Computed example of a mutant assay.
Amino acid sequence: MALTRLDRDRYVLGDASAHVGFLNCERISERSHIHDWTVEPHYHEGLAQLFVFDTGTVDGLIDTKRQRLTCPVLVWLPALCTHAFNYPKDMQGWVLTVPTSDIARLAERAAWMAPWIEVPQILQGEPHRVVLSEALDLAKSIEREHEKHDEIRNSVLEALFLLLLGNLHRGLIQQSGNREPVGDRQTALVRQLQTCLDRHMPETRSVADYAKMLSVTPTHLSRVAKAVTGKTVAEIIQDRVLLEAKRKLAFTDLPVSEIAYTLSFSSPSYFTRFFAGRMAETPKAFRQRSRKASV
């Protein structure tokens, strides 16, 4: 297999800042023209994924362990987890992609996730037949809801996804010896950084503040982040700010000036320059375009 690479555009639709809604739902077959049913080793920064495989047998690589997955299967992959798949042609299945900021928010009110949410998980086999059957039904419901564009879409998607995680959790309770090895120290540090960002954005955007929270120097934190994600801590923070800005513009009627101050910008004009520099359009133009796209 090829060397592991950080992926932002081949197997997902952009990085975390590109995911404006709660989640993105795709059938495996939808992007088969890109990967020809073979997904090379890669990982994502700022995005977690839940794979729901319905039919066939999938050969996979998860972290450093080769897996033979006999469907139906649930596969949970936290951010920064290396993975690769060889799919049988025309297999049925879905991949659900969710920003880690939303996963952290869900985990705050669902403490039962804590033991496994940061570690890759696989659920398969006859003992989990009922749980997996329910998971397939939920995946189909998520796919149908994902195609809608009304005001309750995100709320319904979040509720369905939480039910799906609940199914996975119940299966994992029944399953013994399912813990995968935790990644190396660099990966663990970046995961801790992401958790801090989820908890403290937008109250602080200071690299030094986050380094202090993690008991490391800003230089060390940025060096590790760059090695793991290809981005500096400052760039990761900017991505998170951009994601929040896009969501507020797309899904609220807050004035641009109020969004600017909510995100701790010193002035609306500074916010507009930041947004336009990253998106090649003003916040107002983005809001108008996103509203037209949902009609």
Rank of each mutant, 00 (worst) to 15 (best):
A285W: 05
G166F: 00
E26S: 15
F53Y: 09
L189F: 04
M279K: 11
G46Y: 15
P283W: 07
Q124D: 01
L74F: 05
V233I: 12
L61T: 01
D54W: 05
G21F: 10
C25D: 12
L96K: 07
G177A: 00
E108Y: 10
C196Q: 14
D137I: 00
Q124E: 04
I34E: 11
R240C: 11
L96C: 06
S266L: 06
T38S: 14
R27K: 13
G21N: 09
F161L: 13
F275M: 12
A188L: 15
A234T: 08
S266M: 03
V39I: 08
Q186V: 08
F161H: 10
L77G: 04
L214F: 00
T64S: 09
L132N: 02
K148C: 14
L243M: 15
G166K: 01
Q175L: 02
R68Y: 07
A211Q: 14
Q49T: 10
Q192C: 09
A111E: 07
A227H: 06
L138Q: 03
Y11F: 13
A110Q: 08
N167Q: 02
Q192I: 01
P127G: 03
P181S: 14
D209G: 14
L243E: 13
V20F: 14
D184S: 09
Y210R: 05
L69T: 01
G183I: 04
D239I: 03
H146F: 13
A16S: 12
L189D: 08
H42R: 02
A234F: 09
N86P: 01
L162W: 11
L74W: 02
E258N: 10
V256G: 01
I152S: 10
L162Q: 12
L138W: 00
A250S: 10
L242W: 12
T57C: 15
P115S: 05
N167E: 00
E126G: 04
T204K: 10
S257C: 05
M1R: 02
A135P: 03
A114I: 06
C25V: 15
P218Y: 08
P255F: 08
L3N: 04
H35I: 04
L136S: 02
V58D: 09
L197K: 05
M91W: 10
V20W: 12
G125R: 02
P268G: 01
G183R: 09
V295R: 14
P120R: 02
L3M: 06
S266F: 07
T97C: 07
H33P: 09
T229S: 11
E40D: 04
R247V: 13
K89V: 11
F85T: 03
V224L: 06
D54M: 02
F22C: 12
I237C: 08
W37R: 09
A135M: 03
V207W: 14
L249W: 00
I62H: 01
H128C: 02
T217N: 07
T38K: 13
L162H: 13
V95Y: 10
E30G: 15
T262S: 07
A225P: 07
D209Y: 14
R191M: 06
Q67G: 00
H83K: 00
G177K: 01
D63R: 04
F271Q: 05
P78F: 01
M91E: 13
V52F: 01
L172T: 09
G46H: 10
L69S: 04
R273V: 11
